[in-house]
């Protein structure tokens, strides 16, 4: 049985279920208790679990992420809430130097079963310092797992897996998708890391999207199908670990691919995935793998400008047409 639930509620359920299941799971961060976060994702948790397990912190990201890393080392499973993904810059040392490396540097004696949940996504008119999509930044660091739920279903299943994982996991939720509904099973389920989901099957081109870009890819695929182009849409679900097999298998079938991620295009997630496809499916490619990402500018505050910086279904569909027609993509 399943019902329609918002992404926000799905995350809330995942955390509540895991906190009931395991007394070592606790939450901390800014405005996680009474306020339930600015997006109301965590509403109701402090009422059920009390201020001892749902802990409001001062505005002190390096401090409370450091606390979470230490707490994780000593036997608890903290879920640390970073109000905006943009604040990752503040916690780089705690996350990338401490959490990511402790297991390795202690010879396996200190693991850090911590979840850092944060968000990404532009077009919320939040300006350049609250609109970034920084998943590439942490996916670059060995020792961190990175999950990018694309719907309420993924958000719940990936969060539960993340909480049970014995290593640090960073989960990026798209802050524009909190009210988006999707069918979510009534019964308990987990989504294993490293398993991509084929969201739509097709034979002419593979559209690989992360987080909300899965919706962009699905809309593009819908538009293309009216023109007789059959697009396959794949959601990797976790960037680290990455399900290369599913991606490669699809591209061997379709011979074409477009990768879409809302992080900046330069040196980003899309480039990594495109490179892996190139390495493993080169002789099956009938066209260059294209990348779509946020324009390489600070996210503008002006709504009219901001909307121009993110990938759109129309742009993806247009690129897909060009590839499928066999037109020259770049100067020879």
């Amino acid at each position: 049985m399943s019902r329609e639930t918002t992404l926000s509620k799905a995350v809330n359920e995942a955390i509540a279920e895991e906190m009931r299941r395991d007394p070592t799971v606790f939450l901390l961060g800014e405005d996680v208790a009474e306020a339930g976060t600015p997006f109301k994702v965590l509403s109701g948790l402090v009422e059920e679990f009390g201020t001892g397990r749902v802990i409001d912190t001062p505005i002190s990201e390096p401090g409370f992420v450091g606390i979470a890393v230490g707490a994780a080392m000593t036997g608890t499973r903290p879920i640390v809430d970073l109000m905006f993904g943009d604040f990752l810059y503040l916690v780089m040392d705690q996350l990338c130097n401490q959490a990511a490396k402790s297991y390795y540097m202690s010879g396996g004696k200190l693991n850090v079963p911590m979840v850092l949940r944060t968000n990404m996504g532009a077009t919320r008119r939040s300006a350049a310092q609250h609109s970034q999509s920084l998943q590439a930044l942490v996916a670059h660091i060995p020792g961190l797992k990175v999950a990018m739920p694309s719907s309420a279903y993924e958000a719940k299943g990936l969060m539960k897996t993340a909480i049970r994982d014995d290593n640090p996991v960073v989960i990026f939720e798209d802050k524009l998708m909190y009210q988006d509904k999707a069918p979510v099973p009534e019964e308990e389920y987990l989504i294993p890391f490293g398993e991509a989901a084929i969201k739509r099957e097709g034979g002419d081109i593979t559209l690989i999207g992360t987080s909300s870009m899965v919706q962009v890819a699905l809309k593009a695929a819908e538009a293309l199908s009216a023109e007789g182009i059959s697009a396959e849409v794949i959601d990797p679900r976790t960037l680290v670990p990455l399900d290369e097999e599913t991606l490669v298998r699809s591209v061997k079938k379709t011979s074409r691919a477009i990768v879409i991620d809302e992080g900046h295009r330069n040196y980003g997630v899309t480039g990594e995935i495109a490179a892996r496809l190139n390495e493993r499916a080169f002789y099956h490619l009938d066209a260059p793998v294209l990348r779509f990402g946020a324009m390489d500018v600070p996210v503008p505050f002006s709504p009219a400008l901001e909307d121009l910086t993110v990938p759109t279904p129309e742009a993806v569909a247009q690129a897909a047409r060009t590839l499928c027609r066999g037109e020259l993509i770049h100067a020879a």
Partner: peptide, 30 residues
């Protein structure tokens, strides 16, 4: 495209035939 090159290689076909025939480039699996 790499795919056409592979297929041509497997079948022992000479891609330059397409070029000499004036077929527009780039060539694809089709």
């Amino acid at each position: 495209s790499p795919k056409l090159r592979r297929l041509a290689l497997q079948e022992g076909l000479d891609l330059s035939l397409l070029a000499r025939a004036g077929h527009p480039q780039p060539f694809h699996a089709r």
